[in-house]
Amino acid sequence: MRPDPAPSIAAARGLRFVPGDRPDRLAKAAASGADPVVIDLGDAVAPADEAAARAHATTWLADGHAAVVRINAAGTAWSESDLATAVEHGGP
């Protein structure tokens, strides 16, 4: 079972935001002691890279890593897919 990141958000000492299209940075952020790692699917990702960012987030979360997923704003072309990704892996 994946750890629940919610308790660590309330007492977070240092969030690490990682653009979803940069999966090479996820392990480094997790190893830094961040509590929690935030996979940013929002404005940190270029429109052309949105689908790849969601795929990277899905892989990271499916591998059992805990993270918070920051999604695009409601009403954008990507918000519904972002939300589905987060929910699939234990989101809101």
Results as ranks from 00 to 15, higher is better:
1 M>H: 14
3 P>L: 11
4 D>Y: 03
5 P>H: 03
6 A>G: 07
7 P>T: 01
8 S>P: 05
11 A>I: 13
11 A>D: 14
12 A>V: 08
14 G>A: 14
17 F>D: 11
17 F>S: 08
19 P>V: 02
20 G>M: 07
23 P>L: 04
24 D>E: 15
25 R>V: 04
25 R>E: 12
25 R>Y: 11
26 L>K: 00
28 K>S: 07
28 K>N: 08
28 K>E: 10
31 A>F: 00
32 S>D: 13
34 A>D: 08
35 D>S: 08
35 D>C: 06
36 P>V: 03
36 P>R: 00
36 P>M: 03
38 V>L: 05
38 V>R: 02
39 I>K: 01
41 L>Q: 01
41 L>D: 04
41 L>G: 01
42 G>A: 15
43 D>P: 02
45 V>A: 00
45 V>W: 00
46 A>E: 13
47 P>V: 09
48 A>P: 06
48 A>T: 11
49 D>V: 03
49 D>N: 12
50 E>S: 09
52 A>P: 05
54 R>G: 04
54 R>W: 05
55 A>L: 09
64 G>Q: 07
65 H>R: 11
65 H>M: 07
69 V>P: 03
70 R>G: 04
72 N>F: 01
73 A>M: 10
74 A>L: 14
75 G>E: 11
75 G>P: 08
76 T>W: 03
78 W>N: 10
80 E>Q: 13
84 A>G: 05
85 T>E: 05
89 H>W: 03
92 P>I: 08
92 P>M: 06
